[in-house]
Structures are given as structure tokens and as C-alpha cells.
């Protein structure tokens, strides 16, 4: 378990972290979300000890994080960086050794990773001689070489082509399956929804929502997606039973109804049936992108674009 507890950090007049608090359960893929400037990078840097905190504490596996603990962490900063003129394997060995590995183990781990990432042919190449895609693979390898217990990646998917996204997703999922805790930030919310079990959404240096992706999609209110044949405007929902509210109407006439109590769903179904043939009736699951927009209090896009999932 990685715990961030009441983190504060100011840069001049700007509070990058303003009481940020959340926990990452062990052995999960954890999405760290927030608009630009929300404090994600500062929080990750604080976990890695790259930025100091004004106040607050960070714990991992129950103990406060110190330099020794951090050497069991792997880090991929948003601004990628490697020694341009150092050879791939030498570089991986160096990073491994900085994380407490001995020389031969670090070299073996570097070779092994390169094989898995398809870099076996380029072990002796200088990083600057590699293609951009291969440089990104080496970057990932540099974060993984010491087999970290916690992997922190800042926008790891930005700038990757779709194949690169798939490769990285797979590599991260493998690590999580092997028992590592993987935390990454991303603006690609569909990807996060697909990959992560849990997320935290932050804004203005504070946590605004956290939980499992399904919990957040549920959002504490019951939602139904109902479509009645031939009613493209969702008119049938003008008169909903007590305890049910029309939330939105999609272009195809699907109405999203919010309920205070799931026992009211029968009444909604009755109302729909009374209006015509019910084409669709099911739980509406919010997309993570919608959850995100609501959480950070940015205006939701018009209902027409709102996407719905029948459970």
C-alpha cells in the first residue's frame, strides 16, 4: 500500500499540493488523473523524493518512505531522459546498480529486459542512435531493471503510437500481475478505464475522487438507460414516478434516468412500457471521462455526446 497523507507543497504563490491524500492498494494498476496543473507530477516527484514537501507524509508498505525504500521504486518521469551517448546495456546496468543491484545481476537484468522488449540487437548501441520508439523502450527498461515493487510513471503513454501503447500496456499489466504496484498518470481516460482497477482524480492539489473504476462509474446514484421505440425525444420521461429524474436524452432517444433507490426501477419500467415498446432498459454506466469531468467541475459536454453502456 502506498499512502499519500496530507501533502502540501507551494511553489511561490501556487499551491501545487494542497492537502493531497489518497492510498494505492498493493498489486494494483492505479490511474492517477487530473487536469494539467492539478499537482499530479509534483505528487509523483514527491513519492520519488525528487521534490521536497512543505508538509505531509508518504508511506509504503506501512513505513515512511526514505531513500532506501525509494531504491525499490521505479520511475519514469514525464520528461523522458537517458544519457544520449551511453550504450543501452551500460546504461541499464548503471541504473540497476544505483538501485542496489550488483554489477552482474544488473547486467543480466538489463539483457533480459532488452530481450523482452525486443532490443536484443541494440545492446551496444548508443541511446541517441536508436529510433524514438526504441528510446522509449529503453526508458521503460531503465524504470524496470531493478524489478521495482512500486512503479511510478508520469504520462507514460503520451507520444506513443498505438502499437507502443499496446506494448506498454502489456508490460505494465505483466508487472502488476507479478506483484508490483503500478501508478501512472494519463489523460487518455479510455485507456485508464481499460487498464486500471483503481483511480484517483485530483484537482487544485487535492483529491476529488478515488475508488475502483466501477465504483466511480456508479457514482453513488443509480442510473438507468431506457429507450422507448418511436420516442426520439424521450417524451415518455416527462412524467417519471417520484424518486426518479431525467438526466439526459441521447440523440437516439435513450433517456438516462437517475434514481435515489434502486427499488424504484420497476416504476420507471412501468412508465416506459406505458409509453410504448421498450427497446432498451438497463443500468447506465458512466464513462470515466464523464466521472472525471464532473469531479474536476469542468462543464460536461452536451448530452448528445454522452456515452452509455448497458451493463
Amino acid at each position: 500500500m502506498l499512502e499519500l497523507d496530507d501533502l502540501h507543497r507551494r511553489f511561490g504563490d501556487v499551491a501545487a499540493l494542497d492537502g493531497m491524500t489518497f492510498a494505492v492498494p498493493p498489486r494494483t494498476m492505479f490511474g492517477f488523473l487530473g487536469p494539467n496543473g492539478a499537482g499530479k507530477t509534483t505528487a509523483m516527484r514527491a513519492v520519488l523524493g525528487v521534490t521536497s514537501l512543505d508538509s505531509g507524509s508518504i508511506r509504503f508498505a506501512g513505513a515512511p518512505v526514505d531513500d532506501r525504500a525509494r531504491r525499490r521504486f521505479g520511475y519514469m518521469p514525464e520528461e523522458r531522459g537517458l544519457y544520449p551517448s551511453m550504450r543501452v546495456l551500460d546504461q541499464l546496468q548503471y541504473f540497476g546498480r544505483l538501485h542496489d543491484m550488483d554489477a552482474s545481476a544488473a547486467r543480466r537484468a538489463g539483457e533480459d529486459l532488452c530481450r523482452r522488449l525486443g532490443l536484443s540487437e541494440r545492446l551496444d548501441a548508443k541511446v541517441e542512435e536508436l529510433s524514438l520508439g526504441n528510446q522509449q523502450r529503453v526508458q521503460l527498461a531503465a524504470a524496470l531493471v531493478h524489478d521495482p515493487e512500486l512503479l511510478v510513471l508520469d504520462e507514460p503513454f503520451s507520444g506513443l503510437d498505438p502499437v507502443g501503447v499496446d506494448d506498454l500496456s502489456q508490460a505494465l499489466a505483466e508487472r502488476a500481475a507479478e506483484g508490483a504496484t503500478v501508478v501512472f498518470s494519463s489523460h487518455q481516460l479510455d485507456l485508464v478505464e481499460h487498464l486500471c482497477e483503481q483511480v484517483a482524480i485530483v484537482d487544485h492539489g487535492r483529491l476529488v475522487a478515488t475508488g475502483s473504476v466501477s465504483e466511480l462509474a456508479h457514482g453513488g446514484v443509480i442510473r438507468l438507460a431506457v429507450r422507448v421505440a418511436g420516442d426520439a425525444d424521450g417524451r415518455w420521461a416527462d412524467a417519471l414516478p417520484a424518486g426518479a429524474r431525467r438526466r439526459s436524452v441521447a440523440a437516439d432517444g435513450t433517456v438516462v434516468v437517475e434514481l435515489d433507490d434502486e427499488r424504484d426501477s420497476d416504476a420507471v419500467l412501468d412508465a416506459a412500457r406505458a409509453a410504448g415498446r421498450v427497446e432498451q432498459f438497463g443500468a447506465a454506466r458512466r464513462r470515466l471521462s464523464e466521472v472525471f469531468r464532473e469531479a474536476v467541475r469542468r462543464d460536461s459536454p452536451p448530452a448528445a455526446v454522452e456515452e452509455l453502456h448497458a451493463r
Binding site: 520519488l48 531513500d67 518521469p77 537517458l82
Partner: peptide, 17 residues
């Protein structure tokens, strides 16, 4: 400057002071 401009310094400083 090389470490700073190539940003490798951020990775280095995640394991050393």
C-alpha cells in the same frame, strides 16, 4: 548541462541525492 537537458537527472535523483 547534459544531464539536465536530457532530463536523465530526474531519474538519477529518484535514487540518489
Amino acid at each position: 548541462v547534459e544531464e539536465k537537458s536530457s532530463r536523465v537527472v530526474e531519474i538519477l535523483l529518484s535514487s540518489i541525492r
